[in-house]
Structure formats: structure tokens, C-alpha cells
Design a protein around this nucleic acid. Structure first.
Lengths: 207, 207
DNA sequence: CCTGTTCCATAACGGTCGGTATATAATAAG
DNA sequence: CTTATTATATACCGACCGTTATGGAACAGG
């Protein structure tokens, strides 16, 4: 019943071959969800952007919600990779710098929609979007936990003062990140966002 | 043609008197918009919460968009008053403290919906909500400007170091504010939000 | 060829959206 | 009383929502 979404190899297909690339269609869907949010993206918006008809979409992805979760997977893999890379920076300060500048690149750039796809889709509150919101919150919590551990390691390494609260610092960094995506979505220029980040880094605790 | 929405005095009304209190109905509408956002709040949601029928709503408020703008006015007057009060604090540090703690009280409380009504309604991007978003962005910019001026005064008074960028600091404070409302809407506890604010204040520049 | 399977295209489903037409009820003025 | 004016209640509008049934087109194996 459940069909493999990742482009199947040419062998073993019995019926009529599909006329579109699933990965590319998913990338287009991601773009629509990113720009309009889960509720704001209609099936018509999606199918037109993906270049396929509604039955094709349902056959390949299940339904709108399943399509969103797959788009969110792709979003995290491709666009939120800077979050994983940030953790590997040598110092806590560089972790934060990498994080915030990465946010500007991804959420304040010109090639992709402004703002954060997860944030946009999780603040809209239609009852059917509750599972969407729960998914986003869950993913956010897990990546936030990694950041707490990273800052606790930094404290052990004397990288940030011992009196600093690692969880609190993580919440602060996340709040700044969220603020960046909000302001980017509201039309802030790249210069304004960099000013925000630069000022943030002047406040960052010194070891 | 345009009717005065503020409860008119008993004199001069010619027809059948209305059977509901306009102010109270507006307060109920505010609650719905706050919880669900502009797009997420349906006319049925609104009329049921307000206890009136759709024709009554249209007669009294015009349409959904006009109702939202009036609800947003009420929201700013009643719920965002802490933003104006913060500006009058004696030092920049106290301004920030007042601002952030006020945000926790209003956006992370239990009596009202979690999160920020403006943020929730301005991130949803249906084409019809563009003017909603523009209104929210405009109001935000104007209150942000007041904060920049306040911090520039603080610099002149030696309240924060001269090398600090007042505009950047304002963007940082606003990002923290937005992050607080986002995390409150995502289910953060009051203790977590206070931890965020406390840690933020340990980073605040000393004079 | 035929059969089976899978995909595409059209059209339609019931439901909800924001917004109204219509008719009736309640008041003030004459 | 009648008349004018305004509010209410019901029912409805066209448009769009997410989803699916239907019928034909394109392939593989026999």
C-alpha cells in the first residue's frame, strides 16, 4: 500500500511510468509550504507549482499532511544543516556565530522564501494543523537539546563562565534565531539582520 | 453611512436598539483572533464567541478585516501597554527588564491565549491577509523606533556604553521578545521563559 | 493480440469559507 | 394609529477547500 517515494529504480515497474520526478515535485512543494505555511498552501497552489494533478499528488505522497511532513524532512536536511554544523564549531562563541549567520543566510536570503517554514506553519492554528505544530515543536525540542549539551560541554571546557546557565543560554540563542526569522519574514534587510547578530555577539559571555 | 462603533449614547437612536454590547463583542473577537490568527479565525468562530449573528457583525464592524483592525487596536491599548510603560523606566537595563517581563506576563500567561496576536496573524500568508501583515509590521516599526530613541538617550546619559549600537540593541531586544512569544505559543512554561529573560539580562551591557 | 497494472486527466464530491438578500421584530417620530 | 429606521434571524450565495470516483492512456508480461 505504502509506496516508496524516493525515485524507484527502473526495474520492476509494471504499469505506466510516472511522468514527473518525485524529488523535484517535493522540492517545489517545499517552496510553497515555506512561502505560505501549511494552512495557507492550498492543494491548487501545490499542484500548480509541482506541475502535477491532484490525483498524482495523492498517489505519490498520500495527502496534504503527509506531503508536508516529507517537505519538512527535506527542509531540515537541506536548509537546516547549518544547525548541525554549528555544533561542531570549536568554541561556544563560534557555535553561536555560526548559528546566527546561518540563520541569516537561510531565512533572510533572496533565492528562497523569507522566514522559517516551521515557524510559519506552527503558529497558524487551524485544528487540523495541530499535528503539524506538534511535529515542528518536537523537532525543535530535539535540536535544542543538542545545543544545551554543547553549551554544557563548553562550560566544562571553560569556554563560557561557570555561572552561565546553559539551558537559559540556549533559550536565548533560540529566541534570537526565532526573532531573526520573524524579522526576515517581515521584510528586514540583510544589513539589519547582520546588525542584530553583530550586536548579539558583543553581548555574548566571554570566558 | 459609517456608524459609530463606540457604544453610542442613548440619545438620537431612531431604530431598533441593538441587543449586544459592541465593546464586549469586540473583546471576544480579540480573544478569537489572538488564539487562532486572522486566517484561522472563521466568521463562525467569531460570531459564536461574540454571541451575535453574522448580519449583526457586518452591520456593527463592517467586515472581517475591519473587525480585525479594531481588535488589534484594542490589543495594543490593553495588552501592549507594558511596551509604553517600559520606555519610562529610568535606565536602559530596566527598560529591557520591564519589556521582557511584561512579555512573559502578557504572552505567557494563563488567562489569555499564548503567544502574540500580531505575530500569529502576520506570519500566516494568505493573499487576503497581506494588508493585515502590513498593518502589524507598520505598528511594530513605530514602536521599535521609540525604543531606538530611548536607547540613544540612554547612551547620551552614559547608561549603556558608547560603543553599543542602539539600533542593533533594539533589534536584539525585539528578537528576544519575539522569541519569547514564539516559545510561549509552543508551550514553554513560565519558568523556562523567566530563565530565558534572566539569562538575557546577565548578558545586558553594563555602563 | 489480450490482460493486468499503474498513471494521468477531468470532473465531481460534501463541506466550509466570507459575505448577503429577505423578511420580521422593535424602537422613535409624526 | 402609520411611517421610517434599525437590528435580528434564517436561509442562501458563489467560491474555494481537501479529497476522490471515473475513464482513458501507457507500460509489462503472456
Amino acid at each position: 500500500m505504502e509506496q516508496d517515494v524516493i525515485s524507484a529504480p527502473a526495474s520492476g515497474q509494471k504499469g505506466r511510468p510516472r511522468e514527473f520526478c518525485v524529488d523535484q515535485a517535493l522540492a517545489e512543494a517545499l517552496h510553497v509550504f515555506w512561502a505560505k505555511g501549511y494552512d495557507g498552501a492550498s492543494m491548487t497552489d501545490l499542484t500548480e507549482a509541482m506541475g502535477i494533478t491532484k490525483p498524482s499528488l495523492y498517489a505519490a505522497f498520500g495527502n496534504k499532511e503527509a506531503l508536508f511532513h516529507k517537505a519538512l524532512d527535506l527542509y531540515e536536511q537541506e536548509k537546516l544543516e547549518y544547525g548541525r554544523a554549528a555544533l561542531e564549531q570549536p568554541t561556544a562563541r563560534k557555535v553561536a556565530e555560526y548559528y546566527l549567520h546561518g540563520a541569516i543566510d537561510v531565512h533572510g536570503g533572496t533565492s528562497d522564501p523569507k522566514g522559517c517554514m516551521g515557524l510559519i506553519s506552527s503558529l497558524a492554528c487551524s485544528p487540523e494543523a495541530e499535528s503539524i505544530k506538534a511535529d515542528v515543536v518536537r523537532r525543535r525540542a530535539s535540536s535544542q537539546r543538542l545545543l544545551v549539551e554543547r553549551f554544557e560541554r563548553a562550560k566544562a571546557e571553560g569556554d563560557i563562565p561557570a555561572h552561565v546557565d546553559a539551558e537559559g543560554l540556549t533559550s536565548v540563542l533560540y529566541a534570537l534565531l526565532q526573532g531573526i526569522t520573524v524579522q526576515a519574514g517581515a521584510g528586514a534587510t540583510r544589513a539589519e539582520l547582520e546588525r542584530l547578530v553583530d550586536t548579539s555577539m558583543t553581548l555574548w559571555p566571554s570566558p
